[in-house]
């Protein structure tokens, strides 16, 4: 049996992604530069970018989306580490705990969003519980968690979705490859905190970095969750772009495309940085292994 060439095996995937995804992205760039305009003779124009970058509604949205993505990613990582460290030991009821831990992974983000909406609006379920216990006198004294300017509701929904995703990656690592190293460190006299800082955490880093990038990108670009739970100002970037795209005024379309491209650039730059970081970590580990 002759071996199939590598490029032949990769070709279908590369063709599909190129035609159905990369070409549309390039098309978006051309549209944002007014390339197909029939009204102006100018070849290309950066007006859409100038308009967008100087408008406070865009810069506020950019800050909003970046902040939300950063906070929900960091919070999810911390929770994921604590829960996974707990669930790696055997105890009664661990199987159920593992099932509960994985429960939200296949549940769509916006279904979690719907339950956050029903729980945390000022007339939501939690507000009713507070009222029943006499903690608040009326629904208006319940704190604004959903549709708020700080995006607290959006962050809660993201964290509930993300921490199991990052956590399962950490947990499966803890259950297999790391164990021997940790035992070795323990034999050499390292206490729990030293073992975590010098052995476990560095070994978890690649997993955490990779799953965090996926999670951060999702939170940064999500349309559905801010649609359900976000404030009217500042809007998440995806909402702002969609509204400009569907605006009756066709002139706002290049602006929508400009926002889309800025989002793409930010995310792709982050991923390339993360890959460089991952490669350095892998090389360092390979060198250390070589020494032993």
């Amino acid at each position: 049996m002759k071996e199939t060439k590598t490029w032949v095996m990769l070709l279908p995937t590369i063709l599909v992604i190129s035609i159905l995804f990369i070409i549309p992205l390039i098309y978006t760039v051309l549209l944002s530069l007014n390339f197909f305009s029939i009204t102006s003779n100018q070849a290309i124009s950066f007006n859409a970018y100038v308009d967008i970058l100087t408008s406070s509604s865009f810069t506020d949205s950019l800050a909003f989306s970046l902040t939300i993505a950063l906070i929900s990613t960091v919070a999810s990582i911390l929770i994921a580490i604590v829960v996974s460290m707990t669930l790696r030991n055997t105890f009664i009821g661990r199987r159920l705990a593992l099932f509960v831990y994985q429960f939200n992974i296949p549940v769509p983000h916006y279904v979690v969003g719907i339950s956050i909406l029903l729980l945390f609006t000022q007339t939501g379920l939690v507000s009713r519980w507070f009222y029943a216990f006499g903690l608040i006198a009326s629904p208006s004294s319940f704190p604004v968690i959903v549709f708020d300017q700080n995006g607290i509701g959006v962050i809660i929904a993201f964290v509930l979705k993300f921490f199991p995703f990052i956590g399962i990656a950490i947990l499966s690592l803890l259950l297999t490859s790391i164990k021997d190293y940790e035992e070795q460190a323990a034999t050499l006299g390292a206490n729990r905190i030293q073992r975590f800082i010098h052995v476990l955490f560095p070994m978890m880093m690649p997993s955490i970095l990779f799953s965090s990038i996926l999670v951060f990108a999702y939170a940064f670009g999500s349309y559905e969750v801010p649609f359900l739970l976000g404030s009217t100002y500042p809007k998440a970037l995806a909402i702002l772009a969609y509204q400009k795209f569907t605006d009756i005024d066709l002139n706002s379309r290049p602006e929508a495309m400009a926002i889309a491209n800025i989002m793409t650039i930010i995310i792709v730059a982050l991923v390339i940085l993360a890959y460089i970081q991952l490669n350095t970590m892998n090389r360092m580990r390979a060198r250390q292994n070589g020494k032993e």
């Binding site: 990769l10 995937t13 590369i14 995804f21 772009a241 889309a260 989002m263 793409t264 792709v268």
Partner: peptide, 27 residues
Amino acid sequence: KTIVEIFILLPAIVPVISAVMGMQGIY
């Protein structure tokens, strides 16, 4: 190989909203 991996990963990380406007036009 790394470049191929990043290329394949792109649709998972580029926001849907960023790609879908151009996709609508091309499709």
